[in-house]
């Protein structure tokens, strides 16, 4: 053992941490630039379906979101799928006001380009979706996007069974 102890004294100087703030700042700026704040606090269970014919939504500022799914806290709200607008549950009739409010926030030139992104849980039945679509038509928000993940939907359907 003592064989190893008696080497020359070679102390490695501690690594300078002076550049650490620079590195951290670099990361910080990266995240600050790429970040998008969460629009809403999710109150419904949302697991997207898959599809492969998808388009990316370009301008986030022109997109409004509607969530549909089972409430997360099933003890209080039950298990029937609900619609979530902004931060609260809503009935289909409220969609028209929601769309009107969102449209009001947009620049006049951008209003025709407004898109509604439907984030719907895959277990939801079409009844409520149809109601929402009818309301969107009444509100003449005709550009919609069924939000999905990328993948093969036929495969996904088969694996479900």
């Amino acid at each position: 053992m003592s064989k190893f102890k008696k080497g020359e004294k070679k102390t490695v100087g501690s690594i300078s941490t002076a550049s650490l703030p620079d590195i951290v700042f670099m990361l910080l700026f990266f995240f600050m630039v790429t970040t998008v704040m969460r629009e809403v606090e999710l109150k419904v269970d949302y697991r997207p379906t898959t599809a492969d014919q998808i388009t990316k939504l370009e301008e986030k500022s022109l997109v409004s979101y509607i969530y549909i799914g089972k409430p997360l806290s099933t003890k209080i709200f039950g298990t029937v799928p609900r619609i979530q607008l902004n931060d609260s549950f809503a009935e289909p009739e409220q969609i028209r006001d929601f769309i009107a409010a969102k449209r009001e926030q947009l620049n006049e030139n951008d209003r025709p380009k407004m898109t509604v992104s439907l984030k719907i849980d895959k277990k939801v039945e079409m009844g409520i979706v149809t109601d929402v679509k009818q309301e969107l038509r009444k509100a003449s928000a005709l550009k919609i996007n069924y939000s999905t993940n990328e993948g093969d939907p036929v495969e996904a359907l088969r694996s479900r069974r």
Partner: peptide, 30 residues
């Protein structure tokens, strides 16, 4: 460094990296 880390962690937590994509459709007018 500590201050920068604090900010960094805040942005890390509040960020969502998901790009929204899906099937784009047009509804017929009412």
């Amino acid at each position: 460094a500590d201050i920068a880390f604090l900010l960094l962690i805040f942005f890390l937590v509040s960020t969502t990296m998901d790009t929204d994509s899906g099937i784009l459709r047009r509804l017929p007018p009412m």
